[in-house]
């Protein structure tokens, strides 16, 4: 049985670093691809990335067209419903604005009192 020196819990003996360095040296770097293989991989990755970006852009444009087209169709088919939605929206906006102004005024009064 060997006696190891008593270190604090967080101390890292130098011999442990040496053990790991020997592991690094002994195991080498596996099968490291050549520069040409990395270049091919880079070119392939760029092509794939460009394709993906084009695909995402197309998806975005199609979705936007679908939404805008849907709204336009609804507007042309039943204009009364669209006007109703706009009126409700506007009324809701005005109500929120008015009530928030009232709340702000009440808050200011309370603060000064």
């Amino acid at each position: 049985m060997t006696n190891r020196p008593d270190h604090g819990d967080e101390q890292w003996p130098e011999e442990w670093t040496r053990d790991l360095q020997r592991l690094d040296q002994a195991l080498g770097e596996g099968r490291s691809p050549s520069v040409e293989e990395f270049q091919m991989l880079a070119a392939h990755t760029q092509r794939r990335q460009r394709r993906r970006m084009k695909y995402e852009l197309m998806l975005f444009v199609l979705t936007a067209l679908l939404i805008v087209g849907g709204i336009l169709m609804a507007a042309l088919a039943v204009p009364a419903v669209l006007i109703l939605i706009h009126v409700i929206g506007m009324l809701a906006g005005v109500t929120v604005l008015a009530s928030s102004k009232e709340l702000r005024t009440a808050g200011k009064k309370g603060f000064h009192e």
């Binding site: 195991l27 770097e29 596996g30 990395f38 760029q46």
Partner: peptide, 27 residues
């Protein structure tokens, strides 16, 4: 150069770092 899309520079850069990366992952 790699950030500008130069694949030759990318190849050289990753070849240079691969060994370090692999040894780290092996450990």
């Amino acid at each position: 150069k790699a950030q500008q899309g130069d694949t030759n520079a990318m190849g050289a850069l990753f070849k240079h770092h691969y060994s370090f990366l692999y040894k780290y992952l092996l450990k």
